[in-house]
């Protein structure tokens, strides 16, 4: 099975530098402080935010800033075959959760909420590659939906290197190929990389090209999210009567 045809087309018809279809929904769960559903192609992730509120655990609260608690879960129906539920304490789960948490800690203006706690819960509904990227994006939108002040937007995407071609936004089949998978999250306006993780091994020369591609992808995702947020706000303002139709 070839990942890139001689024509330059991938398995699902995209070219190497194209993102998948992005869709998002803001505020699907009204009882949470903020929530968002984010889809990258077939990968669907829902994120909810509870906070800022008084820390549940007094001993964990910090006196000068808020703490971020992050929860990651994969639904049992998220992959093709129904698989066993991964326990909460599973290594992969905790690692992903801590990655997301540290990304958000860099993004949120925590100093504004001392002794508070912001809880982010991410649940993956369908897996089709690029899961971490979708989680971070969903979390970001949920935070925006909750109205929590952020330093900058954060956008994430995945890039890989198969058949000597850097590919953007891998789907599940491409992830199972023997190539590396680089997830990159950055602040598009500050132009700062927040998260850079890598699976498998990659040689030094293609690494540059792959991260460069990932950064451009992130910027495109950020653009999409910004447009969605603006549209959402526009809708609310119109309903409220604050803005003209």
């Amino acid at each position: 099975m070839e990942f890139v045809s001689p024509e330059g087309l991938r398995l699902d018809g995209r070219r190497p530098k194209e993102l998948r279809a992005l869709r998002c929904q803001l505020g699907p769960l009204p009882q949470a402080d903020g929530s968002a559903l984010f889809e990258m192609g077939n990968t669907k992730v829902i994120a909810t935010v509870y906070g800022p509120k008084v820390a549940d655990n007094r001993s964990q609260a910090l006196h000068d800033r808020a703490i971020v608690k992050c929860d990651y879960a994969e639904a049992a129906f998220s992959t093709g075959n129904r698989r066993q539920r991964r326990g909460r304490g599973d290594r992969k789960t905790t690692e992903l959760a801590s990655t997301i948490r540290s990304a958000l800690e860099h993004t949120i203006l925590l100093d504004l909420f001392p002794r508070a706690q912001i809880g982010v819960s991410v649940q993956v509904l369908q897996v089709d590659g690029s899961v971490l990227g979708a989680c971070i994006n969903a979390a970001m939108l949920a935070l925006a939906n909750a109205g929590i002040p952020l330093r900058d937007m954060i956008a994430a995407t995945t890039a890989g290197y198969l058949e000597s071609t850097p590919l953007l936004d891998l789907n599940f089949l491409e992830t199972t190929g023997a190539g590396p998978e680089v997830t990159l999250a950055l602040h598009p306006n500050l132009d700062k990389v927040v998260v850079l993780t890598e699976d498998s091994t990659i040689a030094a020369e293609p690494f540059e090209a792959v991260t460069e591609l990932a950064q451009q992808g992130c910027k495109a995702v950020a653009q999409f999210m910004r447009a969605q947020l603006l549209q959402h706000v526009q809708t609310i303002a119109t309903v409220r009567g604050l803005a003209a139709l």
């Binding site: 699902d12 194209e18 998948r20 279809a21 192609g41 077939n42 093709g80 075959n81 369908q126 089709d128």
Partner: peptide
């Protein structure tokens, strides 16, 4: 973008598996 369910026959387990796939035209 077209999303559809893809059915594949797995020889090892002799069963049909389905997965969500998409095609970008």
């Amino acid at each position: 973008r077209r999303a559809f369910r893809a059915y594949r026959f797995r020889k090892q387990s002799q069963s049909v598996s389905e997965a969500a796939e998409e095609a970008y035209l």
